[in-house]
């Protein structure tokens, strides 16, 4: 008994996704098989019936109803401000902490030592002296409270950012 083309192959032939050889083999079979040709014709009929479907005119403009249901911009804006404030505090803290750390490590002395060593190599360049001013107004100390505060700020930013991203991904992939 003759082996007919599987449904899958007929569909893939219709969708034009078969490679050259497979396509050629299908065409050879179709050439002398009435039954498979009839099946393919039925698929073509479905395709053209679907393609011939009229477009339905829009009953009315949907935009006003959609926009009315979208929460006002300020909700988003408040969130942005909260995030910005949080980021601002975190960045400020990091700057203060760094300035304190610089004083603590006394970089001037390290630099002076390095420069003096370099000078002893008799390079024909002179190095100007400079100081890093400590931020006197903020007497910020490297304490466990500060470190915990910074860690919590960073964690909150990370959490909120990821929650927003995950939420959006979810919406797109249903």
């Amino acid at each position: 008994m003759k082996k007919h083309l599987p449904e899958e192959i007929l569909n893939e032939y219709l969708d034009d996704v078969l490679d050259g050889l497979a396509r050629h083999q299908v065409e050879i079979h179709l050439f002398d098989c009435v039954e498979c040709r009839a099946q393919l014709d039925a698929l073509h009929l479905v395709s053209s019936a679907l393609a011939g479907l009229d477009n339905e005119p829009l009953p009315h403009n949907l935009a006003p109803a959609v926009l009315a249901k979208i929460p006002e911009q300020h909700t988003r804006l408040v969130w942005k401000l909260v995030l910005a404030a949080q980021a601002g505090i975190a960045i400020g803290m990091i700057i203060i902490l760094l300035s304190d750390l610089l004083v603590w490590f006394q970089p001037q002395e390290w630099l002076a030592l390095i420069f003096s060593q370099l000078a002893s190599l008799e390079f024909p360049i002179s190095y100007p002296s400079f100081t890093i001013p400590r931020l006197q107004a903020f007497n910020f100390q490297v304490s466990s409270t500060n470190i915990i505060f910074l860690a919590v700020s960073a964690l909150l930013l990370w959490g909120v950012g990821n929650a927003i991203l995950m939420n959006n991904r979810h919406e797109v992939h249903k």
Binding site: V66, N168, E171
Partner: peptide, 14 residues
């Protein structure tokens, strides 16, 4: 269609 647009709006950053 309205629901689809609202969902699109919530996912607009993507």
């Amino acid at each position: 269609a309205q629901e689809a647009f609202l969902r699109a709006c919530r996912a607009i950053s993507s």
